[in-house]
Design a protein around this nucleic acid. Structure first.
Length: 472
RNA sequence: GCUCCCUUCGUCUAGCGGUUAGGACGCUGGCCUCUCACGCCGGUAACAGGGGUUCGAAUCCCCUAGGGAGCGCCA
């Protein structure tokens, strides 16, 4: 039994998107499950489109998700010598050849083939032409003309491709740089990759790569092609579907474990289980259970998972992750109530860290405006009496008694004395304190706001009622 | 156009010849309740269509329809 070695091989032409992240996750899980190694390789042979910024955001995304690689990152641009060597071998063995067909000729050929309703492919014009190495030329692989390439895909099952459908692909461009199909083959071979887990957009490349590998006298690795992820409209997930960059989810207040959990359930399942820790994923993941059909990305379910993890997570950690989001609102949480306490009572009410920051803001600063419907409903003249009674009672409360139990007694006491239902007292107070009709229980809300701000905000509410009464 | 792939509630999925077709998200009715969430109880909704095979098909086979990918000196 050979060691399991998997790899994630993104090309640095953009950010790490959710589709790539899921492929990386599957590769990672498979390696971990089998005690193997997970390799990261940067496929940057397209010099014009690859950028270092892109490499950085991909690495950042993987780090955030916790997808740790054991080897790499390896850069293909640093391996050009090796590719040149392999191409030379192929050339010498007659398994590759030089081609000087002009782009015009190839274009004309393609047009003719399309017009004749046949699959456009290179016609092998230069196969036996002995093109001089001194001329500008590309190098093509001499693909077998006959026979069938059988791919035993771990997810798709047995797939057959006829060699007649394949043409002589380019291994080296006229500028001397190697192409994708050559570099993957060489790298997977050199890096001892046992299982190639990748997006199914590569499915059609697989027989070509197997042919190259065989020409080099190597046995191909196992393949597993995972279906892509679709947007809500059924088209391939892309920018216009909203956030597809993994890092964008962090900015939108999602937890990495939520995204990971969502991703692992997209196209894979273990019975009815919905919640998976990373350890469980590693233990239970299996390529055979990965679906063959593409899945649609559903932000609602991701959000639900995020809410779940927001509740489960250690409040200290959440507080730490929340700080930057509060910062964006101009709030410095070190000034005021203990953020961990705030998280404990408010986290169950938020779906994202962004939302948590928003609903926590009232603790640290006075709100801007009342929520219109809340104010209209609760800050009416009938609320004046209870608010005044509350203000008086709360003002008399010593700071040492400013804790939930006593605060609740005070509010209930006022309600009883005025012979009003608790809601008629607590709701106006709530709107006075947070500006909205929703907050944690009134005792806890009072505690978080603190005595000073409470009295100030009740005064503000009373003034508001006064002002409104005067207007009508 | 050609080659390859895919098809269970709106979405993610369970199912692997015999089930009232299950779960989750969403939506929704109710309970809880000082509000909002959480939680709990209930509801809504699917085997793409047509042929076979079989005593019996969501499950096996074929066809049709629909969807997707590939067909680059991109990866």
């Amino acid at each position: 039994m050979t060691t399991v070695r998997t790899r994630f091989a993104p090309s640095p032409t953009g950010y790490l998107h959710v589709g790539g992240a899921r492929t990386a996750l599957f590769s990672y899980l498979f390696a971990r499950k089998h005690g193997g190694r997970f390799v990261l390789r940067i496929e940057d042979t397209d010099l014009t489109r690859s950028t270092v910024e892109s490499v950085n955001t991909i690495l950042e995304g993987m780090t955030w998700l916790g997808l740790e690689y054991d080897e790499g990152p390896f850069y293909q641009t640093q391996r050009f010598e090796r590719y040149a060597q392999v191409i030379e071998t192929l050339l010498q063995k007659g398994l590759a050849y030089r081609c000087d067909c002009s782009k015009e000729r190839l274009e004309a050929l393609r047009q003719r083939q399309m017009a004749a309703k046949i699959k456009p492919r290179y016609d092998g014009h230069c196969r036996n032409r002995q093109v001089s190495p001194d001329q500008p030329h590309v190098i093509r692989f001499r693909n077998p003309d006959q026979g069938v390439v059988v791919v035993e895909d771990l997810i798709r099952g047995r797939l057959r491709f006829h060699n007649e459908e394949l043409d002589d692909l380019i291994l080296r461009r006229s500028d001397g740089s190697p192409t994708y199909n050559l570099t993957v083959v060489v790298d997977d071979w050199d890096m001892g990759i046992s299982h190639v887990i990748r997006g199914d957009d590569h499915l059609n490349n697989t027989p070509r790569q197997i042919n190259i590998l065989r020409a080099l006298g190597q046995e191909p690795p196992r393949y597993a092609h995972v279906p892509m992820i679709l947007g809500e409209d059924g088209a391939r997930l892309s920018k216009r579907h909203g956030a597809v960059s993994v890092v964008a989810y962090r900015e939108q207040g999602y937890l990495p474990e939520a995204l990971l959990n969502y991703l692992v359930r997209l196209g894979w399942s273990h019975g009815d289980q919905e919640i998976f820790s990373l350890d469980e994923m590693i233990e239970l993941f299996d390529l055979e259970q990965v679906h063959r059909s593409p899945a649609t990305f559903d932000r609602e379910k991701l959000t639900w998972l995020n809410q779940h993890y927001l509740q489960q997570a250690d409040p200290k950690r959440i507080a730490h992750l929340l700080s930057p989001h509060l910062g964006k609102l101009g709030i410095d949480p070190s000034q005021g109530a203990d953020l961990v306490q705030v998280v404990k009572v408010l986290a169950p009410r938020a779906k994202t860290l962004v939302e948590l920051a928003e609903i926590s803001a009232f603790v640290y600063r006075d709100f801007e405006d009342y929520d219109e419907t809340a104010a209209k409903k609760h800050l009416r003249p009938v609320a004046r009496e209870p608010l005044e009674a509350l203000r008086a009672a709360l003002e008399d409360l010593a700071l040492d008694d400013w804790e939930p139990y006593t605060l609740e007694q005070v509010v209930k006491g006022v309600a009883e004395r005025l012979q009003r239902k608790l809601g008629k007292v607590a709701q106006p107070l709530r709107v006075a304190l947070v500006g909205r009709a929703a907050s944690p229980s009134i005792d806890v809300t009072l505690q978080l706001v603190g005595k000073e701000a409470t009295l100030r905000r009740i005064d503000r509410a009373l003034a508001y009622i006064q002002h409104r009464a005067a207007q009508t």
